[in-house]
Design a protein around this nucleic acid. Sequence first.
DNA 1: ATTACTTAGTGTAAAATATACACACTATCT
DNA 2: AGATAGTGTGTATATTTTACACTAAGTAAT
Lengths: 231, 231
Amino acid sequence: MGTILPKFDSVFSIDCVIFGFDEGELKILLIERNEEPFKNWWALPGYIVEQDESIDHAAERILYELTGLRGIYMDQFYTFGDVNRHPQGRVITVAYYAMIRLNGTKDLKPISNYASKAVWITLNDLPKLAFDHEKIFSKGFEKISHKISYQPIAFELLPEKFTLTQLQHLYEVILNKKLDKRNFRKKILNYGILKELDEKQKGVSYRAAKLYKFDRRKHAKLFQKEITFGR
Amino acid sequence: MGTILPKFDSVFSIDCVIFGFDEGELKILLIERNEEPFKNWWALPGYIVEQDESIDHAAERILYELTGLRGIYMDQFYTFGDVNRHPQGRVITVAYYAMIRLNGTKDLKPISNYASKAVWITLNDLPKLAFDHEKIFSKGFEKISHKISYQPIAFELLPEKFTLTQLQHLYEVILNKKLDKRNFRKKILNYGILKELDEKQKGVSYRAAKLYKFDRRKHAKLFQKEITFGR
DNA sequence: ATTACTTAGTGTAAAATATACACACTATCT
DNA sequence: AGATAGTGTGTATATTTTACACTAAGTAAT
């Protein structure tokens, strides 16, 4: 080539929209910022990406450093880059989402002190967020509502063993719509991706429901067989 | 706030995956680069975004400058940011796609001389591309195959007046799958988003087919009613 | 032990949608 | 007049979706 080309340098960030489900409520993971700008504001876990790391890797690292959650696989869903979204200049941000199970993960602990805390917040109690994070959150929520209606990803949010009623509630919360119990069960069992266990729910003050497990092997077989809910 | 914060500066680019359909073939818009790196290589139309313009706007501008195509509405679909995707440093790129009608638009003319030409290339004849543009193209193609199977966006690619057979061919090319003529017609006509015209195809050496038009008003009514093809 | 309470668990009929499949018609060309 | 090439059409079957209500099982309180 011969010509000497200028060196480019990029500053951009990652933001993570992480969904969890607990006690019948859909939650999202937020941090309280410990640095300017927006110090003490609630925000999505997010930070500037290093020069020499891949975006996917950065997403995982940043989520870990800000919340203590490790090895969470996330999908990229949109890049936000309004000129004034960041007070310090043009910083575009690549947004990722994930749906995770929050059984023992109540022990959120920021590693970096860029965040003073990390907590699960119920969607209905969402506070004002830093930057354009409300917009990012909305788009992330749209994304999962859409995705859940054609792919069986809801299991990610549930504990390993769950009842059909719990699963149905989850669908109802995400789709914001009541579903018929019999039809729901018929449909979900038909996919054959659930394994019925010999176990029952415990500690409830009424008839205990059977527990089920998501059968990854069978699911992998169906692979891209897309399913539909609530259209 | 009080604290003085550093100023950030961002360098990132846009790349456009633009689909067209002509003479029964699916095509994509490429430019020949006129600058290093990858001078004289084929590439997706793409360039660095200005500091003070929105990403969406940049996409439109860049497409115009490199190909002469004006006012094309595109959707963002993914951001690519492998550490070494660009030889001049870390440059992430936000990818957009669009499906457009290429009736009179054969007159592609780069405005900027960053491109020496812009041409429509049949998918089967895809040359090697600069940067990671093959990867970007693939993901863009995945995107439209997926999208076309649940939203009636194929009309964007056809001339204003088209025959049902042309429409079917288009679906077949994108889905890479034969469809049944009778079932296809039944289904597509059922959505009620096509207007039958009093006109017939001209210049064919066999029985001429009826022409149809996409009815935007009716389509807007159905709005998010998603449709399905070829599952 | 009885009762009250709460959720689990189940089937069927009707409607809508998807699939498989083949031949006669019409315009043009020679 | 005949050959050619694509248009346009219907039906029967299978599958999927929807609507809808009661009994069974376990727990808690008395």
